[in-house]
């Protein structure tokens, strides 16, 4: 009898242990999802800002049509992207194009003095920062979640209930580091 009770107690303890791991996994996964939602909000915000920016800048920047076309193109690419990887790719191209625009602004003192543009520029900087902070938070959450999935003993529970590792949101630095082309025509 006593052995049976001990056996039962051990079983119950093991079950409780697994339940707590399962709950921890769920919590981490929800945090990852929430962090992703935050990035998504900020990316949308940037997409919304762009038409406004183009509209303000158009009248001043007559020589930068290529950059503006790129911005519009990458924006629509980014809006149609599906997976995390695709999104990261398109968004980094968009960041690069916006960076180029920012460099060119230096050549247009009238534009730099325009209050509407200054306000827009602050909004754009803030949105870029928010994207990168949201990304930072998302990647931290993904790291913790993935660690939990890979480590023993939580990997057993993760395997049983089909918890899958999440993808990091990595911005490829290629576009951002690209030197803006200077044209003399």
């Amino acid at each position: 009898m006593i052995y049976f009770i001990i056996f039962l107690a051990v079983i119950v303890l093991i079950i409780l242990f697994f339940v707590s791991i399962y709950n921890a996994l769920i919590r981490l996964r929800n945090q990852v999802k929430n962090a992703w939602a935050q990035i998504d909000v900020q990316l949308k915000r940037r997409h919304d800002l762009i038409p406004n920016l183009i509209e303000t800048v158009k009248g001043y920047m007559t020589h930068e049509r290529q950059i503006m076309e790129n911005i519009t193109k990458y924006r629509s690419q980014a809006m149609n992207a599906q997976t995390v990887g695709e999104k990261a790719q398109a968004e980094s191209l968009l960041s690069g194009a916006l960076g180029q625009l920012r460099v060119q602004v230096e050549n247009y003192p009238d534009l730099k003095a325009n209050q509407n543009f200054l306000a827009l520029q602050e909004e754009l900087t803030a949105t870029e920062n928010k994207i990168s902070f949201a990304r930072q938070n998302y990647n931290d959450q993904v790291l913790m979640y993935n660690n939990k999935i890979q480590m023993f003993p939580s990997n057993i529970v993760a395997g049983m209930f089909n918890f899958k590792e999440e993808e990091f949101f990595e911005i490829k630095d290629v576009a951002e580091k690209e030197v803006p082309k200077v044209s003399f025509n």
Partner: peptide, 16 residues
Amino acid sequence: HPQLYNVVEEMKIAAG
């Protein structure tokens, strides 16, 4: 003060 507001929001996002 848009910048101040934005910076606070940025930190809110960073802290999650």
